[in-house]
Simulated scan of single mutants.
Amino acid sequence: MVGDRSTRTVYEEVQDSDEFAALRSRLRRFVFPMSAAFLVWYLAYVLLASYARDFMAIKVLGNINMGLVIGLLQFVTTFAITTAYVRYANKHLDPAAERIRQRVEGRG
């Protein structure tokens, strides 16, 4: 970082700490793969809707077709990812973030 140790803020010190780097790494280990998986899933839906019209038109139950089922599963997936993230954050992210917060506030 810019500046010597005496002019750095507590936030700059925290940002350069190993503990913060580990927290950031844990967050990225969840967010990037989950985001990629969801984008692939969403892209598959868009491609199916565009190029596999016969498949998407298959009747599943009454007037409900595969397109509607897969489209609704997009919402289910969103809620499942949110639930998974909350559980992951509660177990792996929040305790470390709390330790960092206490350290920062302890200096103030």
Rank of each mutant, 00 (worst) to 15 (best):
residue 34 M to S: 08
residue 105 E to R: 09
residue 19 E to L: 13
residue 57 A to D: 13
residue 19 E to F: 06
residue 75 F to Q: 04
residue 87 R to C: 03
residue 25 S to P: 05
residue 6 S to L: 08
residue 104 V to M: 07
residue 1 M to Y: 09
residue 71 G to C: 03
residue 99 R to G: 08
residue 66 M to C: 06
residue 9 T to Q: 13
residue 98 E to R: 14
residue 33 P to S: 08
residue 69 V to F: 03
residue 80 A to V: 14
residue 71 G to M: 05
residue 108 G to A: 11
residue 24 R to E: 07
residue 94 D to V: 14
residue 43 L to H: 03
residue 56 M to R: 02
residue 50 S to M: 12
residue 92 H to A: 05
residue 63 N to L: 07
residue 53 R to M: 02
residue 4 D to I: 13
residue 44 A to S: 14
residue 23 L to C: 08
residue 11 Y to H: 02
residue 85 Y to F: 14
residue 62 G to P: 12
residue 87 R to S: 11
residue 107 R to F: 15
residue 38 F to I: 03
residue 6 S to D: 08
residue 69 V to R: 02
residue 17 S to I: 13
residue 61 L to E: 05
residue 20 F to L: 00
residue 49 A to I: 03
residue 48 L to K: 01
residue 43 L to M: 15
residue 90 N to F: 09
residue 93 L to C: 10
residue 26 R to H: 01
residue 26 R to T: 03
residue 29 R to V: 09
residue 8 R to A: 04
residue 106 G to N: 08
residue 96 A to V: 15
residue 25 S to N: 09
residue 38 F to K: 00
residue 46 V to Q: 09
residue 47 L to Q: 08
residue 2 V to I: 08
residue 20 F to T: 01
residue 57 A to Q: 04
residue 90 N to T: 12
residue 5 R to T: 12
residue 28 R to M: 15
residue 41 W to E: 06
residue 107 R to Y: 15
residue 7 T to D: 13
residue 15 Q to Y: 12
residue 81 I to N: 03
residue 45 Y to A: 02
residue 84 A to C: 05
residue 53 R to L: 04
residue 5 R to F: 15
residue 11 Y to C: 01
residue 58 I to A: 05
residue 89 A to K: 11
residue 99 R to T: 12
residue 33 P to N: 07
residue 75 F to N: 10
residue 9 T to W: 12
residue 15 Q to I: 10
residue 20 F to W: 12
residue 14 V to I: 15
residue 33 P to W: 10
residue 69 V to T: 01
residue 2 V to S: 01
residue 24 R to D: 11
residue 14 V to F: 11
residue 76 V to F: 12
residue 3 G to P: 08
residue 57 A to N: 11
residue 3 G to D: 06
residue 28 R to C: 14
residue 74 Q to P: 06
residue 8 R to F: 01
residue 98 E to Y: 13
residue 8 R to Q: 14
residue 2 V to W: 03
residue 104 V to Y: 00
residue 5 R to N: 10
residue 62 G to H: 09
residue 5 R to H: 07
residue 42 Y to K: 00
residue 22 A to V: 15
residue 19 E to D: 14
residue 90 N to Q: 11
residue 26 R to F: 00
residue 42 Y to N: 02
residue 30 F to P: 08
residue 22 A to M: 13
residue 28 R to D: 14
residue 84 A to D: 09
residue 65 N to G: 01
residue 99 R to H: 11
residue 37 A to I: 15
residue 81 I to C: 00
residue 14 V to D: 09
residue 44 A to G: 12
residue 100 I to R: 01
residue 51 Y to N: 04
residue 100 I to F: 05
residue 5 R to S: 10
residue 88 Y to I: 07
residue 33 P to Q: 07
residue 23 L to S: 02
residue 70 I to F: 11
residue 37 A to L: 15
residue 88 Y to A: 02
residue 14 V to R: 10
residue 96 A to M: 15
residue 86 V to N: 04
residue 108 G to V: 14
residue 52 A to R: 11
residue 11 Y to G: 06
residue 69 V to I: 08
residue 21 A to Q: 09
residue 83 T to C: 00
residue 40 V to H: 02
residue 88 Y to P: 01
residue 38 F to S: 00
residue 81 I to P: 00
residue 52 A to T: 06
residue 4 D to R: 07
residue 68 L to G: 08
residue 56 M to L: 07
residue 8 R to D: 00
residue 101 R to Q: 07
residue 39 L to D: 04
residue 8 R to M: 10
residue 100 I to S: 02
